[in-house]
Amino acid sequence: MNWDKLQHIDLRILYAIILLCMMIPMFKPVGLPVAVSDNSETVYQVIEDLPDGSVIWVSHDTGSGNAPELNPMITALAKQAFRKNCKLVGTAFFNETVGPTLVYEHIDEVAQEMGKEYGVDWINIGYRLNAEATMKILVDDVWAGAGGVDWSGDPLAGFPIMQEVKSIRHDVDLLFVTTVGSPGYATWMQYVAEPLKKPLTGGASLTMYSGVQHYIRSGQLKGFLGGLRGAAEYEQLVGYAGQGLAGMDAQSMGHITVIIFLILGNIGYFMSQKKGKQ
């Protein structure tokens, strides 16, 4: 047998198999149970421990590529927060349209379902240029940092929630940040959470997740959700099945397929090495 072939499978076949393996579970879900990690448990508990009616600052700092991993976190957060009658203030600094649109859509969907009103129970400030400088202004003056208007350009004075939220320093109880790069959790940590000693939690895309671990261990992040898996765990804790849990079977199949190809590639490598020695 020509073992070397195992090392050089046509990439088109590899791509087709990966695509198929990830698509099939979307149509025929298996529903494997998802074990909850300590980090996801901490995120849930930090929000659960907030007094009812607290204000949570939600920054959906994502681009369109990572949005499918992070959107379910926003939906689950809205469900947990509104259940506790918490108020949500949304921003997005990573991308000028993706973040603000998605934070609006995902909170709005839950708000309508739970009878919460825009401007009273939640608001979307949206994107502002130069995250670092804006965050520093938001710390003491949310109205100035936001330029006096929400994402749609409506004056903040017209929204009852903004009578309660004048500054992050005095009026915000928790920061929940989703992150795919910079600006992201590190920016919030540097300019807002650390100077004000505000609890900071949220979630990161899986590619960034390894980079946040040491901040979780140091206590600078109060737990953190990692990718779609983290979102699925959080959904499970909040008690509903959303996009996170729905994507878990596809993720399982995708990962298993890659592992199988790794094994095949290595078998081919070893056998051809052995043959070469002989």
């Binding site: 494997l32 149970p33 998802v34 074990a35 899986l206 990692g226 990718g227 898996r229 878990m248 079977d249 993720q251 399982s252 199949m253 995708g254 990962h255 298993i256 890659v258 592992i259 790794l262 290595n266």
Partner: peptide
Amino acid sequence: LASAVLLMLAQAPIGDA
């Protein structure tokens, strides 16, 4: 390689299964 395989399995429910 071992870390990558372990983490890929750990990040998907099939790993625990």
